[in-house]
Amino acid sequence: MSDAYLPTAEIAALKARAALTARVRSFFEQHDYWEVETPLLCRESVIDAHLDPFELILSANNATTSERFFLQTSPEFCMKRLLAAGADRIYQITRAFRKDEAGDRHNPEFSILEWYALDDDLVSQMSFVEALCRELLHPDGLRAKSFLRVTWADAFENVLGIQILELDAAELMEFCLQTIPDAVPSEHAGIDEGWDFWAQLLLCERIEPWLAEQHAVFLYNYPASQAALARLSPEDPRVAERFELYVGGLEICNGYRELLDASVLRERNALENAIRVRQGLSDLPETRHLLAAMEAGLPDCSGVALGLDRLIMLALKRDTIDQVISFPIDRV
């Protein structure tokens, strides 16, 4: 008889996961955050060329015509609407959904821990993330180990000896062709795909192996072209107030000093939709509810989205995500 009906995670691991999740909630409550719930199904979704949401066609409110709805890739939009309505320090443990993400470290449906705080800056949130990790990830082993904080550009300079923000797309392409020729897809060799394409290729091939050698590293001040929903730095408009944490080479979370300017978000949405169309993906509807919240006065805030399954993977010293979730995509 097939054992496909069984969970991929051991029952002991699932019990340990429940205990860790309880500790996460306790940690946030001790730091004066309160828990919220927001919808999984909305008429809008994050407009991102690299995140493809699941789409459903539904009739809502007994309507005679059908509408597009999306399973959320993160609870970001609705949580920011709560901030605009007066919430101050909120967190949520919920499900998120992303197409074409399955493997040892991905599942199309996954658990996400997301939080927002008014008036906190990027440095404060990095310290908060570090404290959370020290609470959950083998505390005895973490006390003697530091969490590095390295700017995105400095990581390239330290590993490759280049000042990447000073290079244009053609120069970066040439550097890739000389440095990592075997990693350049044959259909792209000699073609300028754009600055971000070549920067990401270098990140995957050269920077992430270095990150894997470190204990824990915050990469921060991402290039402005990769700002997503982060604001640009007032000190250097070439970079955005955004960070990611890597632990043992595994990306754990993504944090922003949140963008407040609705007009800038409209511009970024249009750009991301144009990229999606060029890639053969459908364009996504304008984020009118979030834009309205921003225009009404989204307060100064920062936020972090953390992959809870991955954090639990590390806490339980497991190698793959299916060892900490009950039924991954191939078991449902």
Rank of each mutant, 00 (worst) to 15 (best):
L6P: 00
A9G: 08
A9N: 13
E10A: 14
I11L: 11
R25T: 11
F27A: 04
Q30M: 06
W34T: 12
R43A: 13
V46E: 06
H50T: 11
F54C: 10
L58H: 09
N62F: 14
A63K: 15
E67A: 15
R68Y: 10
R68S: 13
F70E: 04
L71C: 01
C78E: 15
A84T: 13
A85L: 12
Q92H: 03
F97T: 06
K99C: 12
E101N: 00
D104M: 03
H106A: 01
N107G: 00
E109H: 04
E109Y: 07
S111Y: 13
D121N: 05
D121G: 03
F128R: 09
L132Y: 07
R134I: 07
E135T: 15
L136P: 01
L137E: 04
L137M: 06
H138K: 06
R143H: 01
V150T: 12
A153L: 10
A155S: 04
F156E: 03
Q163Y: 10
L165R: 11
D168P: 12
E174Q: 14
D182S: 11
A183K: 08
A183E: 13
V184I: 08
A189L: 13
A189K: 10
I191L: 13
D192Q: 08
E193H: 12
G194V: 07
G194W: 07
W198I: 14
I207K: 00
I207Q: 02
E208T: 02
P209D: 06
Q214W: 09
V217E: 03
P223I: 11
A227I: 10
A228Q: 09
A230T: 05
S233I: 11
D236P: 05
P237Y: 00
P237I: 11
R242E: 03
G249R: 12
E251R: 04
E251S: 05
E258N: 08
L259E: 01
S263K: 14
L265T: 08
L271F: 14
L271N: 03
A274Q: 15
I275G: 00
R276C: 06
S282L: 12
D283P: 14
T287I: 14
L290K: 07
A296Y: 15
A305Q: 05
L308E: 03
A315I: 00
A315K: 06
D319I: 03
S326A: 15
F327Y: 15
R331M: 01
R331T: 09
